[in-house]
C-alpha cells in the first residue's frame, strides 16, 4: 500500500519513467521464470518429490531392487512393537537433552562473558574453530584423546584416579561422551549467535539497571535472558534439530554400541536402509523423526512466544 501511494505522488513528476516501469513490470514475468527455473527444478525434484516419495515409501515394503509394494500400516505397526526403535528413540532423546542443556548453558555463559570482557573477533574466531571442521574429524580426534590405552585424557585420569575410563566402550558413558564431542563442536557457533543477540540489546538498559542497584547476576537473569529470548529459542531449536539428526560422530566412534547403548535414531535408520536394505521401514522411521521435529519446533515456538521481542 505504501509503495502504491508513493508511486502515485511521483507520477506527475516523471510520467515517462513510470510508463516505462509499468511496461517493465509486465515484462518481468518471463525473465523471472527463467531465473527461478534452476531453483524450482531443484526444489521439485530433490525436495518436494522426495518428501512425497518418503511418505509413500513408509507405507510400502521396499527393498530397492524390486518395486515398492503397498503394505498399508504394517510398517507403523512394526514400529510401535519395535523395542530397538523405542530404545534408540530414548538414546537419541538422552543425547539431545545432554547436548542442549550443556551446550546452551556453556555457550550462554561464554557469550555473556565475552560480551562483558572483549569485542575481540580473534577470540570469537578461535572458539568457532571446531564448528568449521567436520564431525568426522572431531569424532576422530576425540576418540584418539579418549582412547583407553594411549589417549591423553585417560593418561591424566590414570595419574589422578588410578584407572582409565572406557568412554566409548562403557554403555553408561557412551552417550555422554558423544554429547561432549557434540557440545565441543557446536559451542562456539552458538556462543557467536548469542553474542550477536547481546549486541542488539541497548547499553542504556543496563545503565538503568545499575542505577537501580541491580547486581551483575540480577541483570543477567532479569534483563539479559528475557531480552535474548528470540535468539535463545532459535539456538535451542537449531541445537535440538541438529542433535536429533546426529550421525557422523556416532558412526566414527561407537557405531551405535556397545549393545545398542548409543544407537541413535539416524544410525538405526541408516543400518535398516543400508545394511538390511529395508527402505520402507527406514522411511517410516524418518517420517516419525520428521513428525517429532515439527512437533518440537512448534511447541517451542508456542511456549516461548518467540515471534515477539520485548525490545520494540
Amino acid at each position: 500500500m505504501v509503495t502504491a501511494t508513493q508511486e502515485t505522488t511521483t507520477l506527475p513528476v516523471a510520467p515517462v519513467a513510470t510508463a516505462r516501469r509499468r511496461r517493465i513490470r509486465r515484462g518481468h514475468l518471463p525473465l523471472a521464470l527463467l531465473m527461478i527455473t534452476p531453483a524450482v527444478i531443484g526444489f521439485l525434484v530433490f525436495f518436494a518429490y522426495p518428501t512425497v516419495q518418503g511418505v509413500y515409501y513408509s507405507f510400502t515394503d521396499f527393498h530397492v531392487l524390486s518395486a515398492p509394494n503397498w503394505v498399508g500400516l504394517d510398517n507403523f505397526r512394526e514400529l510401535l512393537a519395535d523395542d530397538v526403535f523405542w530404545r534408540s528413540l530414548w538414546v537419541t532423546v538422552y543425547f539431545v537433552l545432554l547436548s542442549v542443556f550443556f551446550g546452551i548453558v556453556i555457550s550462554l555463559i561464554t557469550a555473556v562473558i565475552m560480551h562483558r570482557l572483549t569485542r575481540s573477533t580473534v577470540i570469537r574466531g578461535l572458539i568457532l574453530l571446531p564448528f568449521l571442521i567436520s564431525g568426522v574429524v572431531a569424532a576422530m580426534t576425540w576418540s584418539w584423546m579418549m582412547d583407553p590405552g594411549l589417549g591423553i585424557i585417560n593418561s591424566l585420569l590414570v595419574e589422578l584416579t588410578g584407572h582409565p575410563l572406557l568412554f566409548f566402550g562403557d554403555s553408561s558413558l557412551a552417550v555422554p561422551s558423544l554429547a561432549a564431542i557434540s557440545v565441543w563442536k557446536s559451542m562456539g557457533y552458538n556462543a557467536i549467535l548469542i553474542f550477536a543477540g547481546l549486541q542488539t540489546i541497548p547499553g542504556t538498559i543496563y545503565e538503568a539497571g545499575r542505577v537501580d542497584g541491580a547486581t551483575e547476576f540480577q541483570m543477567f537473569r532479569r534483563l539479559t535472558v528475557p531480552l535474548l529470548r528470540n535468539i535463545l529459542v532459535m539456538v535451542v531449536i537449531l541445537t535440538v534439530i541438529g542433535s536429533f539428526q546426529v550421525f557422523d560422530i556416532v558412526q566414527v566412534t561407537t557405531k551405535g554400541g556397545p549393545q545398542n547403548a548409543s544407537l541413535v535414531l539416524q544410525m538405526y535408520i541408516y543400518n535398516k536402509a543400508f545394511t538390511q536394505f529395508d527402505f520402507g521401514y527406514a522411511a517410516t522411521m524418518s517420517l516419525a523423526l520428521f513428525a517429532m521435529l515439527i512437533a518440537i519446533t512448534f511447541t517451542q515456538l508456542k511456549m516461548t512466544r518467540a515471534g515477539e521481542s520485548d525490545l520494540n
Binding site: A39, F47, P50, Q53, I269, A283, S286
Partner: peptide, 21 residues
C-alpha cells in the same frame, strides 16, 4: 513462501528417496 517450506524438511527424510532417484 512455497520454496521456503524446504527449510522445514530434515535432511534424513529426503535422503533415502533422493538416493533412490
Amino acid at each position: 513462501s512455497i520454496l521456503l517450506c524446504a527449510l522445514m524438511v530434515p535432511a534424513i527424510f529426503t535422503l533415502i528417496p533422493n538416493f533412490v532417484t
